[in-house]
Design a binder for these strands. Structure first.
Lengths: 350, 350
DNA sequence: GCGCGGCTTGAAAGCGTTTTCACGAGTTAT
DNA sequence: ATAACTCGTGAAAACGCTTTCAAGCCGCGC
């Protein structure tokens, strides 16, 4: 690399540019030592009001902002949290992220976001690089992935896992308790529809939530005296397209009329609804539909979508909170947090 | 000074925990100097294959990952970009963010996301902290805000502005050229509806895009020989609620039937559509509606929404690309980029 | 009147990298 | 055979900050 602007003089070299004044400059300007400047910023009580005010003036005058790298290096951590999601697209992640972002801000942390996990949560090399940068990592794992585990644990980084239960010591987790909501939803459908006309349309087969929801769905049907048969549970992906495809398929087959569908998320539910409407069926009269997640989508469509509410923002916020707690106190025993789910009845299943 | 964990011995002090081995450890393990280790990592050609291999073994054995803070401090920058949006909620930002994230990954950068701008793009103190951390800042400014400007410019940080045209030297911008799309959309509505029954329902009055779109809308009406009257353009906010409120209001008044609406975004359009449907009107037969942005929402609702396509992902990606270019070469002349817009006709206006 | 504790401040040691500079060992040119 | 290079490596400075330790100064009590 070329000449690295040593002092203040001269234009900035090549690509570098981070402008600002350093703590040195402030110290010089205020005629105190850098230690004092640091104290004014971090522990103001230790400094005389007179000195303090002089330093603050200097800071303001020079527009001084502490260099986060230096802070990070010198031990106080950079106040940065990483969050890795399978994707950052769509209402679902959007909501999760919003919760995380809000909480992070509240706690004075920054969020390094990455949807790197295209390959099922496996951080790339790039991601690794950031591992030195972040104080903790919130990782969403929707499917089992041992390899990733090892890597993360080896990094000895405070970690919280989203949407997956884990048993590693020292790793917190926030996951969704699908039981209650799924059961409620299934019973709700059963109240108007015979068990053999109830269907569960899931996301990816390996997905933790889809699996859990399917299970509870079947269990509830069984309780109602009608163990579910193979074709009553289908898996695909979390998309409108898949829901629509399933709906069309079913319509071509035995028909959708008089059926009830519990979808593994709102998008799938929406797809099914579209397929029904295409076929001239009325929702909810001809077909009951219940979604999952209660994303904004559910209230945006007509008929509005009954759905199982998952407090996504809370999940995001809780993850960040847990993470910060662990970052601040690494001895803290692992917390396994579960957020509940609850049926919200709207028009699509009434 | 107390035992500030010099070597590897002892428990870590206080809240610290960043695990890994340091370059020192690797050097010791491989029996070389830290300089050599650094070279193996960054400029492998400078080192003998033999030494290099020994070092690589050590690195692997110790699970060494360079500390990003140290790297940042010593001048190579941390490969982190900041992106500040008014919010990170909803399809609009979601899409933008996705574009940015993808491009950032491609270029080997990380994204520090913040929706801090609740107060109209004014970064909080927290935000400021990160300014030392990031190599560049992508800032979405939907409304004029001089104060923020000053602060950002003072930070002498490579900056790219989203969705706002600026004239500061050395500041790139990516904005949306609303002209073409808005004109197309307006003409499209005029082709079925008399000018005096055409309405523009905008977002916040001060919002750049809303202003631009309203202007083109009026201009196009004027060209059609019917300068638009005051009540034909209304402003509110970018929300379904506002669209619905406008729709109800209008329905209570002169009625929506036979009208045509151009909304400033898809959400507003959706709101208007809901109001119409509530009133028993059919879309598009009784009321034509065209939205803006072409978010996923537009294809998800029934009838599907005609809308003006704004390549949001491209905007995000372009912002990141420009930013990285500027970070790498601060002398580069400022780029003012404009992405075009284009009418997409779907069911709601046919 | 002298020592002692409290309060404010400064000096300096890291933190983990990158990068420059210098140095010895081969290699090549004279 | 010696001077002039090149190549591979190590020592050390610099990055900007936090924090510990020590020192100076004050007022207090004995």
């Amino acid at each position: 690399m070329r000449a690295r602007t040593n002092g203040k003089a001269g234009g900035r070299p090549g690509g570098m540019s981070r402008g600002g004044a350093s703590i040195q400059d402030v110290a010089r300007e205020a005629k105190v030592s850098i230690a004092t400047v640091s104290r004014v910023v971090n522990q103001p009580t230790l400094v005389t009001e007179e000195t303090s005010s002089r330093v603050r003036d200097a800071i303001k005058k020079l527009g001084y902002v502490p260099n986060a790298y230096a802070q990070g290096l010198s031990g106080r951590g950079g106040k940065v949290l990483g969050i890795v999601l399978p994707d950052i697209f769509g209402e679902f992640y959007s909501e999760l992220l919003r919760g995380a972002d809000g909480e992070a801000r509240r706690l004075g942390y920054h969020l390094l976001v990455s949807s790197d996990a295209h390959d099922h949560g496996h951080p790339t090399r790039t991601e690794n690089l950031a591992f030195g940068l972040i104080d903790g990592l919130a990782l969403m794992m929707t499917e089992p992935n041992v390899e990733l585990w090892r890597e993360t644990l080896d990094a000895a980084l405070p970690t919280v896992v989203l949407d997956a239960e884990v048993s590693e010591p020292g790793v917190d987790s926030v996951s969704v308790d699908n039981t209650e909501g799924t059961r409620e939803a299934t019973e709700h459908l059963l109240s108007t529809t015979p068990p053999d006309r109830c269907f569960f349309v899931g996301g990816p087969k390996e997905n933790f939530d889809t699996k859990a929801r399917a299970e509870v769905f079947c269990a509830t049907l069984a309780t109602a005296g009608r163990p579910c048969t193979e074709p009553q549970v289908s898996c695909g992906e979390y998309s409108v397209d898949w829901g629509r495809a399933w709906g069309r398929e079913r319509q071509r087959g035995a028909g959708l009329k008089g059926c009830a569908v519990l979808a593994a998320n709102d998008e799938i539910a929406l797809g099914v609804m579209q397929a029904a409407q295409e076929a001239g069926l009325r929702v909810p009269e001809d077909l009951k539909i219940v979604g999952f997640d209660d994303t904004r989508l559910a209230t945006l469509v007509r008929p509005s979508l009954s759905t199982v509410r998952v407090p996504l923002q809370d999940v995001g916020a809780a993850a960040v909170r847990l993470l910060v707690e662990r970052v601040t106190d690494s001895e803290k025993p692992a917390t396994r947090m579960k957020v509940g789910t609850k049926l919200v009845i709207r028009e699509s299943s009434r």
